[in-house]
C-alpha cells in the first residue's frame, strides 16, 4: 500500500511517517504537486495555524494538486490542522479560504477550560465508519488543538472539551481527524491501518 505523505513545512512528519510505516504503508514523502496530483492515497498532516498551512498549500500548488487527486477518486486523510484545512473557513484566519473539500467551518474551543486542549479525550463514534472499525464506540485519542470544526455534515465522531466538537469526518474517499493518531497508541494505529488498508 503506497501512501503519499504531504511534506508540509508546518508539520512534524517523523512521527506520522513512523506510525504509517508501522501499519504497513510504503511511504513517499513529497511536496511536489505533480506527484501529489497523481497519488491514489494521501495523508496531509499539519501543526501550527490554519492561516500558515493554507498560505503554504496555495503558494506551493499543493492545494490544487490535492483537489485534482480527490476529484480523481484518491483517498485523502487530513490530520489536526491538515483536517481543519479540508473545510471552508476557520475563525483562526478570518478571510482565508480553506481547501473547501468538505463543507463547514472551524471554530475556537470555548468554555471554562484551558486552551489549547492538550491530552487524551474520549471520542464517540456518531456515524458508523470503516475508519473506526475494530474500536469500541467510545475510545480515547490524543488531542492538541485550540480550534475544531463544531458541527459539520460529514461528521463521524465527536468529542467534548468545554463544549462538544467534531473529532472525525468522512465523506467518500476523504477523511479528517482532529486528534493525533500517531500519538494515540493502539487506537490511533488502528484508525491509520483502517484508512491505509481501505484506501489501498
Amino acid at each position: 500500500m503506497f501512501v503519499t505523505l504531504v511534506e508540509s513545512p508546518v508539520a512534524n512528519l517523523a512521527n506520522i511517517g513512523r506510525a504509517l510505516s508501522a501499519v504497513g504503508a510504503e511511504l513517499m514523502t513529497t511536496a511536489n504537486p505533480d506527484v501529489i496530483a497523481r497519488s491514489r492515497t494521501l495523508v496531509l498532516p499539519g501543526v501550527g495555524s490554519f492561516g500558515a498551512a493554507m498560505a503554504w498549500l496555495r503558494s506551493s500548488g499543493v492545494a490544487e494538486a490535492l483537489r485534482t487527486a480527490v476529484d480523481d477518486g484518491a483517498a485523502l486523510l487530513g490530520i489536526c490542522v491538515g483536517h481543519q484545512v479540508l473545510f471552508q473557513t476557520s475563525e483562526e484566519a478570518p478571510g482565508i479560504d480553506g481547501l473547501g473539500i468538505l463543507e463547514g467551518t472551524v471554530r475556537k474551543l470555548t468554555g471554562d477550560i484551558a486552551v489549547p486542549q492538550i491530552g487524551w479525550n474520549r471520542v464517540t463514534v456518531t456515524h458508523p465508519t470503516p475508519l473506526f472499525a475494530g474500536l469500541p464506540e467510545e475510545t480515547a485519542f490524543y488531542f492538541v488543538n485550540s480550534y475544531a470544526a463544531m458541527t459539520v455534515e460529514d461528521e463521524v465522531a465527536r468529542a467534548s472539551y468545554g463544549s462538544s466538537f467534531t473529532a472525525a469526518v468522512a465523506r467518500g474517499t476523504v477523511a479528517g481527524l482532529q486528534f493525533h493518531p500517531e500519538k494515540s497508541s493502539r487506537a490511533g494505529l488502528t484508525v491509520l491501518r483502517n484508512f491505509v488498508e481501505r484506501a489501498g
Partner: peptide
Amino acid sequence: FAGAVARASAEQSIPER
C-alpha cells in the same frame, strides 16, 4: 457559581493520565 455549575454538569470525558 457559574464555574461550579459548569463542573457539576460537565461530561467527564477527559481521562486523568
